[in-house]
Write a protein that binds this DNA or RNA. Structure first.
Length: 198
DNA sequence: GGTAGGATGGGCT
DNA sequence: GCCCATCCTACCC
């Protein structure tokens, strides 16, 4: 499956919320595997204390302040990895967490990476599951996602999509902000379709 | 259908 | 030493 053109750097060099919404329906591609992005979260600069960048530039957060379109991958709970894409012009923090995919290519490979998944909806319905399904690790931290092998492409067939905004999952700071975005009615979102309608 | 608890390690106070 | 942008299993309705 080929899909459309790679999203250019200008796509990411915008306000983080715009990018988080804009990524829904696009296709994350890594080698033979691909999936439609169905759930994202925006992590902003400024007063968003839930963001890793809120404490300023450190060895870990350096990439979030860098050039847009690069991957920020970090270890969570000592076991899982989460993929973000850096947004905003260089120098300004902001990134989008990719939280769930609808598998679109390389389904057998994805299944073999996700033995614990019982249903197709469980293959990449969460940030840790997504990186397992797509074989994304901390080795990808800082890579340029406007050039392969890890990229986001335009879909070949454009679907109508309605975006629902909800609070972000698993945070305590700024828990009231509506910075999680899902494709309404899509059953591949994390927590299943019920949590999509918070 | 649902939830409680444990695994596990890096980052920062 | 404490806090996590999580997932899976076991167990209970």
């Amino acid at each position: 499956m080929r899909f459309g053109p790679i999203l250019p750097r200008s796509f990411y060099q915008r306000a983080t919320v715009e990018v988080a919404r804009g990524l829904l329906g696009k296709v994350l591609v890594h080698g033979p595997t691909a999936g439609i992005v169905v759930e994202t979260e925006a992590y902003l600069g400024g007063d968003d204390l839930a963001s890793h960048s809120a404490r300023g530039i450190t060895e870990r957060t350096r990439v979030i302040f860098g050039e847009p379109g690069h991957a920020y991958v970090y270890l969570i709970y000592g076991m899982y990895e989460c993929l973000n894409i850096v947004c905003e012009p260089a120098g300004q923090p902001g990134c989008v967490l990719l939280r769930a995919l609808e598998p679109a290519a390389g389904l057998e490979i994805i299944r073999s990476r996700r033995a614990a998944a019982r249903k197709p909806e469980d293959l990449a319905s969460g940030p840790g599951k997504l990186t397992l399904a797509m074989a994304i690790t901390r080795a990808h931290n800082g890579v340029d996602m406007t050039r392969g092998p890890l990229v986001v492409r335009e879909p070949t067939e454009r679907r109508e999509l309605e975006i629902q905004a909800t609070p972000r999952i698993g945070i305590s700071q700024c828990a009231d902000r509506l910075l999680r975005f899902v494709i309404r009615g899509n059953r591949f979102v994390s927590g299943g379709i019920r949590r999509a309608h918070v």
